[in-house]
């Protein structure tokens, strides 16, 4: 599974993407955030305030309770400031 990071989240993690292989027990976006936070202190600190983290699964904007079974790309990013 490919993970993408954008904006200040990308900067704080020092990477824009990575490949991960979470165990089957990681069922939702929220589970994935917890799992990534458990293996990386920088990630845990960056996502400490979960309400500031938006997510997308396979280029669709989704809430954190969305299942990730079969997903190939999950993206995490701060609230959007375009326009």
């Amino acid at each position: 599974m490919k993970i993408l990071y954008f904006a200040w989240l990308r900067e704080r993690l020092n990477r824009g993407e990575e490949q991960v292989s979470p165990p089957d027990s990681v069922a939702t976006v929220a589970d994935l955030i917890d799992w990534l936070a458990g293996r990386d202190e920088a990630f845990a600190l960056a996502v400490a305030k979960r309400s500031l983290i938006r997510s997308a699964v396979d280029a669709k904007l989704v809430p954190h309770d969305t299942p990730i079974a079969g997903a190939s790309v999950v993206a995490f990013f701060p609230p959007m400031t375009g326009g």
């Binding site: 954008f6 904006a7 200040w8 997308a56 904007l61 990013f77 701060p78 609230p79 959007m80 400031t81 375009g82 326009g83």
Partner: peptide, 27 residues
């Protein structure tokens, strides 16, 4: 379209000035 685009489209603004660069906070 503009009102939704501001909050729902994945763009992030980084302002650069002589003092450095700052990510723009959502309004």
């Amino acid at each position: 379209l503009m009102d939704y685009l501001k909050t729902d489209a994945p763009f992030w603004k980084l302002e650069t000035s002589p003092a450095g660069s700052v990510w723009v906070a959502p309004r």
